[in-house]
Simulated assay, not measured.
Amino acid sequence: MPDAFMEIPPLFKQGTSARMRVATFALLSIVMLVVDARMHVLDTIRQAVGTVLYPFQTAAMVPRNAAAKAADYFTSLTALQQDNQSLRQQQIVNAQLLQQERLLAAENVQLRKLLDMQQRVPVQSVVGEILYDARDPFTRKVILNRGSQQGVMAGQPVIDDVGIVGQVTRVFPFTSEVTLLTDKDQAIPVQVVRNGLRSVAYGRGQTGVLDLRFMPANADIQKGDMLVTSGIDGIYPPGLRVATVALVETRSADSFARIVCQPLGG
């Protein structure tokens, strides 16, 4: 059998030292920098490398851009919700002021003396939403999503952007019960904008119907007349729209007219 020979590694390898290699590569780098700065020979290579790496750069920035857009979305959503809440609050205040201005205009036309009128005090408003109708089928009540924690108190009037809706009758920490004007146990002092005639509107227990009871048959009231709160009860601020007269019936044999009104609020 042929003899097997094993190559024995030398104890010390001969070759270029590490310092020499570092110096060589450093010198080569300096030369390339000088040549590129003078002759711009590497611009084409840079453009090619940039073109190749562009899709990878774009892909790497996708998570960052998505996170930034998500943050902007939630920030914008919060700002829009705050603006919406503020605008709804302002809408309620403006609706109340507008309704009171209509009463003032009618009083100015009728040359009423301003000194005989009570000073109107702005009412603090709380914006709420209807959660559901009350469980009692024989009443006209709804439940709002605002309660004593938000400053709601029993007896406060409830309005929307059109007119009076009802009155807060029970308050809980986070909800409140509102009895609508159409409830059979509700009554609200009103007056006719056209001539200042005062009366009381009563609920009938039916949706969309109010009655003006005990009005003389010769009372100056017509179909289409606007009814607003008179304010004499101290509960409802004066000048808020309540209803319009839908039907006026008078009979010679009756002492009182039959007057049916259609509520505006709600």
Rank of each mutant, 00 (worst) to 15 (best):
T175H: 04
Q167C: 09
I164L: 15
P157N: 14
L131S: 09
P173C: 10
S125R: 04
L180P: 05
I143C: 11
P189E: 08
I164Q: 05
G196W: 00
F138K: 08
K141V: 13
V178M: 06
Q186P: 01
R120P: 05
S199M: 14
G166Y: 03
P189H: 05
Q149T: 14
R198F: 14
N145F: 11
T139C: 06
D133P: 05
N195A: 12
I188G: 00
V127W: 01
L131G: 08
G147S: 09
I130K: 04
V190W: 01
P122N: 06
D183H: 03
P173W: 08
I159Q: 02
A134G: 08
G163V: 09
V126W: 00
S125T: 12
G147V: 06
F172H: 14
V162G: 13
S199A: 15
R120G: 05
D133E: 12
I130E: 04
I130D: 03
R120H: 09
I143N: 07
S148Q: 11
R198V: 15
I143R: 07
Q149C: 09
Q156I: 09
G166R: 02
S148V: 06
T169W: 03
D160Y: 13
D136T: 04
F138L: 12
Q186G: 01
V152C: 07
N145E: 06
P173S: 13
G151S: 11
P173Q: 12
K141G: 08
